[in-house]
Each structure stands twice: as C-alpha cells, then as structure tokens.
Design a protein around this nucleic acid. Sequence first.
DNA 1: CATAGAATTGATACTAAGTATCAGTTAACC
DNA 2: GGTTAACTGATACTTAGTATCAATTCTATG
Lengths: 142, 142
Amino acid sequence: MSKIARLATALQQNGYRLTQARQAILNALVESGGHVSADELVELVREEAPSTGRMTVYRTLDLLHELGLVKPVYGGTGAAHYILMDEGHHHHLVCSTCDRVFEFEECMAQELGRQVGNRFGFQIEGHLLEFYGLCADCQPET
Amino acid sequence: MSKIARLATALQQNGYRLTQARQAILNALVESGGHVSADELVELVREEAPSTGRMTVYRTLDLLHELGLVKPVYGGTGAAHYILMDEGHHHHLVCSTCDRVFEFEECMAQELGRQVGNRFGFQIEGHLLEFYGLCADCQPET
DNA sequence: CATAGAATTGATACTAAGTATCAGTTAACC
DNA sequence: GGTTAACTGATACTTAGTATCAATTCTATG
C-alpha cells in the first residue's frame, strides 16, 4: 500500500471523508517528501487543484496531526514545517548552520519507549528523534 | 556550577556581553523550567526587570539558539516553546490529547548519534527525543 | 576620569503565520 | 433524486515574529 493510500484510509477509518481537496493535499504532501510549511503546501496543492483554499490545507494538516500522521516542527525559520509520521517515527540530522535536514532510518528508540512508557503509564504512539550539529559542508576546515 | 551560571559563561565565552537584561532573561528562563513561549518569557522577565523590551528577549533566545543552548519546539498551539538544551540533549513525552509534557533523563541516543554522525560526516552537538502518545489521564478507560 | 567606539537595548512599525466565521458547496446515505 | 451533515473557501482578523533606528550602556584606552 502506498503512503498516500495509507494516509487516505487512516482518514476514512476515523470517520473523515476523503474529498477531492483532501486527496490533492495528500498527494502534494507525499510528493513533496513531507518537509514543507503549510503555505508552501498550499502552492503545491494548487498546481493540481487550483481552487483549493488555504484554510482547507491548514485544516487537513490539523486533522493529520490529530491522527498522529504528521508532525509540525519549528525550525526557527518562520513557519512550522510538517513532516510525515506515517510509520510512527521519524529521524533527522539538522545542520545548525545551513538548516538543511537529513533523514536516517535506524532507530533504537522503540525499546526505550517501552520502558519509559511503562514508568509514566504512557501509551506511546510514535516518536521524533533529531540530532543537531554541523553537516559536512558547514564544519570549520581542519 | 548552576544552570544559570553555565548559560552565562557560555554567552561570555562566545564574545557576548552579560548585560542585566540578559541576566534577567536567563534567570527567568531557568526558573520557568524552560518550557515557555517567547512572549510568556517576556512577562516573566518583566517581573524582575520591568523595563525589558520584547525584542531583547527574542534576540537573546536567538542567541542561545545559535549556541545550541536552547531549542524552539512547535507544539501546534500558536507560539513556539523554548526548551533548555544546556546538557546537549532533551527528552520528552508529549500527550497528544492534553498537550502536557513530561521529561525523562535516560538516553541511549549518544551511541546511535556517533554511528549516524560518522556515516553523514556530521558533527553532532546535541539531540532531542520526543515520544508522542496518550498520558495516563487521557487513555480510554479499560 | 573622560571619551571614543562598539555592542546592546527598547519603542515603533511592520510582515507573515495561523485562526475564526459563515454562506455556499459537496459527499454520503437513504 | 432529495436530505442532511460534513466540508470548503473567501474574507476578515489575531498574534507570533522581524526590521529599523535613535538612545543607551558597556569596554577599552589614553
């Protein structure tokens, strides 16, 4: 099942309609790779469905956030960026200098999540792990 | 050395002055526990130093962010919240329903950081690990 | 101690991200 | 096809964050 389909069914299974506007938003979101601000996403969506309103995009992102499928992260550059959490977790390397974001897959947080979850009586659904530092291009010459 | 002192010396060692305004901001930030929005922090600072301007607080937070001592996180509730990263890392449990934030200390991300850092040629300075889910109070009754 | 120079401050004004509202539209169910 | 409830998008608005600049404070130096 594609990412788009997974998001779509998640919406429907939670009692939300899969309208054309929402379909277009999901497409644009997944195509973009999932590192866009809300207003950037509006532009992308309008390439496919020009009449789409700004509010609809904001509302859909809210919906996806409520369902834990998307997560807004604030990079310090004005608008929040939304990242896809369709697998429940996400991992970043963020360069403090140039603000570029690299993704990686490995993760050993599941086990820690279980432990900490138990201690706090917390039912864990997903996580975000971000490392900050200097990317290869931004390190001082040696 | 206290948290406040550590932040203060970090500023000075990077060539910034430790002015009264900045001192008051550091105090308020640490006292607050480090989970405040910029404008909330302005209010707190003004209890101690009433003439402090909004811009000064924003600028100081920017400075601390540049030095990697503070990190803005976007919770979806309007303003970014600034968290203290004075140890280089920070760990949260965030409830998706009531938005409360719990902290914990354990962390096994250092080792993973080393591995991933090597692979990307990335020089890692700190990290943030956030788990999302339902806190004890917000789980459906069993 | 006086002064020059640079960093810092805060008032004001501004831009842009995000929210509220509401009449009109669309989808689902019969 | 018709009814109802969910959804949409235009508009107006609030609030977070930024830019600017004259006034102030700090530091260093003679």
